[in-house]
Structures are given as C-alpha cells and as structure tokens.
C-alpha cells in the first residue's frame, strides 16, 4: 500500500481505446449476467446492472491500460503518516467487523433466526467501509489537533 502521484504524461491514444473496450466488454458481461438472473425483467435488470458496472469497469480499463503512463508511485509514500493512519483505521475496522460477525452469529444461533444472507453481507461491507472511514477521520483529527 503506497501513495501515488498523477503525472502530466499521457498514455498513447490506443491505450485509451483499449481501456474503453475493456470497460464496455465488462459492462456488457455484468449486465447480461444480471439480466439473466432476472429473466422476467431482463432488460430492466440488465440496464441497472450496466449502470452499476459501467464506472468500475471503465476504471478497471483505465487502471490496466492507462495508469501505468499517467500515475507514478510516490517513492516516499510509505513514510508518510497517512499510511500509519490508514493501517490503524483498517486494523480497528477489521476487529470491529470480526466482533460484529461473532455477535450476529451468536444472536442468530441462539434466537434461531432465519434471514437472507445478502442483506447481512451487504451490511458487513457497509459497516467495514464506514467504520474504517470514521476511524481514519478520528485518528487524523486526534493527531493534528
């Protein structure tokens, strides 16, 4: 994990084309998969899938074909305090998620609740993201006040 810096360089033109092609292919694949999982509303589901997948797919295309030319690794990024803050926030969030999973598992096992896994997994993703973000803000605030 390290910081990166944008440069003023540009990638060759065909790399941008390749990035867009990869992004479009991934978007189509995801939208077809989402559509196929909802055959009754194929086009609606595929459209929503495409909307959700387009940005990350294009970003991945940029990462694979363009970033090597336009972004350089910060040689001293590893030495900045922000990396320590990120590690502390990540470690704290991991422990919080672990505790949340243990508690939720106990509650579900003892209460014999029967719930869908998808909302629980999405909740865990949201918890980890929000937790890590909040911890980072708090750690940064304490360090700089």
């Amino acid at each position: 994990m390290s910081k990166a810096s944008f440069t003023s360089k540009r990638a060759p033109a065909h790399h941008y084309v390749l990035a867009i092609i990869l992004g479009v292919i991934l978007t189509v694949v995801v939208s077809v998969l989402v559509g196929a999982s909802n055959p009754d509303d194929f086009w609606l589901a595929a459209g929503i899938g495409a909307l959700c997948a387009a940005y990350p797919a294009m970003s991945l295309g940029g990462k694979v074909f363009v970033s090597n030319h336009t972004v350089t690794r910060d040689p001293r990024g590893e030495q900045s305090v922000e990396l320590q803050w990120m590690r502390q926030a990540g470690a704290g969030a991991f422990l919080d998620v672990l505790v949340a999973i243990v508690v939720a598992s106990l509650v579900l096992a003892i209460g014999r609740f029967d719930i869908d896994a998808l909302p629980v997994l999405l909740g865990l993703v949201a918890l980890s993201v929000v937790d890590a973000g909040l911890r980072y803000v708090v750690i940064r605030h304490r360090a700089l006040k």
């Binding site: 001293r76 590893e78 030495q79 305090v81 922000e82 320590q84 940064r140 360090a143 700089l144």
Partner: peptide, 23 residues
C-alpha cells in the same frame, strides 16, 4: 524537501509519529 506530506511533518514535530529509519 523531504518528499512527504505536511501532515507527516506536523505529526513528527508534535511527537505523535516516529519517522521510519530512512526518513
């Protein structure tokens, strides 16, 4: 001059962050 963020310098000066040996 050091090639790090200003927050890094602030944290070192306030003795809230020990720099790595290379730094």
């Amino acid at each position: 001059a050091l090639g790090v963020s200003r927050q890094t310098v602030i944290s070192i000066e306030r003795e809230k962050f020990d720099p790595s040996l290379p730094l």
